[in-house]
Computed example of a mutant assay.
Amino acid sequence: MQPVKIRILSTTSEAGSEAQSTEQKYRGQMTEKGGKYYVMYSEDGQSGLDNTKTTLKWDDERVIVMRSGSVDHRQEFCRGYVDKSVYHTPYMKIPLTTETTYLYTYFRDGSWHLEIEYTLYHDDKPYGEMKILIEIEEL
Rank of each mutant, 00 (worst) to 15 (best):
Q20E: 15
Y81P: 08
E115Y: 05
R79C: 04
D60M: 09
C78Y: 14
E99Y: 09
R67H: 04
D109L: 05
T101E: 10
E23H: 09
Y91Q: 13
Y81N: 03
S17K: 14
L49C: 03
G80Y: 08
T101V: 14
L133P: 00
T22Q: 06
Y41L: 03
E18Q: 12
E138Q: 11
Y81L: 13
Y118G: 06
T31H: 10
P126F: 03
M92Y: 13
T11K: 02
H73N: 15
D124N: 15
G34M: 04
T97C: 10
S17F: 07
K131R: 15
Y38F: 15
K25S: 08
Y37W: 15
Y118D: 02
Y87R: 03
E76I: 11
H113K: 12
Q20T: 10
I134S: 08
E129G: 01
G34W: 12
M1S: 14
F107T: 09
S10E: 00
S68I: 05
T100E: 04
A15H: 13
L114A: 05
D109S: 11
L139D: 12
T31D: 02
E129I: 06
K57N: 12
L114M: 10
T31E: 15
E14L: 04
E76T: 15
E135H: 02
T97H: 06
V63W: 07
L120Q: 08
R67F: 02
K84T: 08
G16H: 01
E43L: 00
P90E: 08
K25D: 03
G110R: 07
Q24E: 14
M30F: 13
V65M: 04
Q2M: 14
K36D: 11
Q2Y: 13
K33V: 08
I132P: 00
I136G: 01
V82I: 13
N51Q: 09
Q2R: 14
V65R: 01
I64M: 12
D44A: 01
R108H: 14
I116H: 01
T119Q: 14
T22Y: 11
K36H: 10
R62T: 14
G80A: 03
E115D: 12
A19N: 12
S111H: 07
Y102N: 07
K93E: 13
K53N: 11
A19E: 03
E115P: 04
M130T: 02
R79E: 08
Q75C: 11
K33P: 09
K125W: 10
I6D: 05
V63S: 05
T119W: 03
V82E: 12
K25N: 13
H113R: 13
T97W: 09
R27L: 02
Y91M: 10
S21H: 01
P3R: 11
G69S: 10
